[in-house]
Simulated assay, not measured.
Amino acid sequence: MDKRKVNGRRFLAVTLLNATITVVEIIGGVVSGSLALLSDAFHNLGDSLSIVMGYVAQVISGRPENSRRTFGYRRAEILSAFLNALFLIVMSIFLIVEAIQRLQHPAHINGKIMLIVAVVGLIANLLSAVLLHAGSHDSLNIKATYLHVLSDSLSSVAVIIGAIILMYINVPWLDPLLTIAVALYIAFEAWPIIKQTISILMQSAPQLDYDAIQKDILAIDGIEGVHHLHAWSMDEHRIIFSAHINCHDMKISECEHIYRQIEHLLESKYNINHVTIQAECQRGRDETLFDTNDDEIHLCH
């Protein structure tokens, strides 16, 4: 993905839009008495902070590798995505608790004011979603931010429907019920990002066919064994791979030809773009594909 598609000006525009919506919805929520509107306002306030954090993380992740960060700063975006998604989960729990309390103590709501403010919020949120859509498919960080504003759009739609109903029918439980529905949706959308970012941060092995990788490597002329394999993800796109191979006794220049074949195989067939191979003659011939020493737990082939 070309991250220039989601540049600083777009992030700034989305931040200003969300800040404006927040002020409008807080005022509208207080005047109308709508919990759904107030909850959406605080949601937007969190969005403004998350959008700033997402942009900062994107800038940091573009820094080059150095002696302190030999793999670069790509994890900054993963951390940002995790924190954004975690905030969504926490906020959803808070909204559900508040809505349950409101169900027990219903309050009168001005549907007309609620409707006007919700329509303004929907327009601004949809515009924000359009500005961030370009990068939402290729970056967990931008996707998390995009989900923030998209969930706000859904919140606004729910509030609009509720406001129209409340303008004609006095249903005191409708506003908190809408709040619960929106909160559950937000948590549902955020949970997969939580799972994926934790998996990356814990250096879990990416979903690859390791049996097929082993067979493909062994099919290369000159390779007699492969063991001590490790694979992990730097972010949602970059897979790091290392392994030891057994070869007959040969010159280093001959090994380099084998290295190139392995690198081409792993990149073209398995989308692995950072490969480290260690050639050995007799050492490790009896070892399994995954190392089980040093109290490490791996799957064995």
Rank of each mutant, 00 (worst) to 15 (best):
K5Y: 07
T15P: 00
L16K: 05
L17P: 04
I21W: 01
T22I: 08
E25Y: 05
G28D: 14
G28W: 01
G29P: 02
V30T: 15
G33M: 12
G33I: 08
S34Y: 03
S39R: 02
S39H: 04
F42K: 14
N44W: 05
D47P: 07
S50V: 07
I51N: 11
M53E: 08
G54H: 04
S61G: 12
R63L: 13
R63G: 13
E65G: 10
E65M: 12
N66R: 04
N66C: 08
G72D: 05
G72R: 05
G72T: 06
A76G: 13
L79C: 06
F82R: 03
V90W: 03
I96K: 00
V97A: 14
R102D: 06
R102W: 04
Q104T: 14
I109H: 10
G111L: 05
M114V: 09
L115Y: 10
A118F: 06
G121K: 01
L127R: 08
L131P: 02
L132F: 09
H133W: 13
A134P: 04
H137E: 14
D138K: 10
I142R: 03
H148I: 14
H148G: 15
L150V: 15
S151A: 15
S155T: 12
V159P: 01
I161R: 01
G162T: 13
G162V: 02
A163W: 00
M167R: 06
Y168W: 11
N170I: 05
L178W: 02
T179E: 01
V182T: 10
V182Q: 02
A183Q: 04
L184G: 12
I193L: 07
T197F: 01
I200P: 00
P206L: 08
Q207H: 13
A219L: 05
A219R: 08
I223W: 03
H227L: 06
H230C: 07
D235N: 13
H237M: 04
H237T: 04
R238W: 02
I239F: 07
F241L: 03
A243L: 09
I245M: 14
H248C: 04
D249P: 00
M250L: 10
S253Y: 04
S253L: 09
Y259P: 00
R260T: 06
H264T: 13
L265I: 04
L265P: 00
N271E: 11
N271L: 09
I277P: 02
A279T: 13
C281F: 11
D286G: 08
E287R: 14
T288G: 11
N293K: 12
L299N: 09
L299I: 07
C300Q: 11
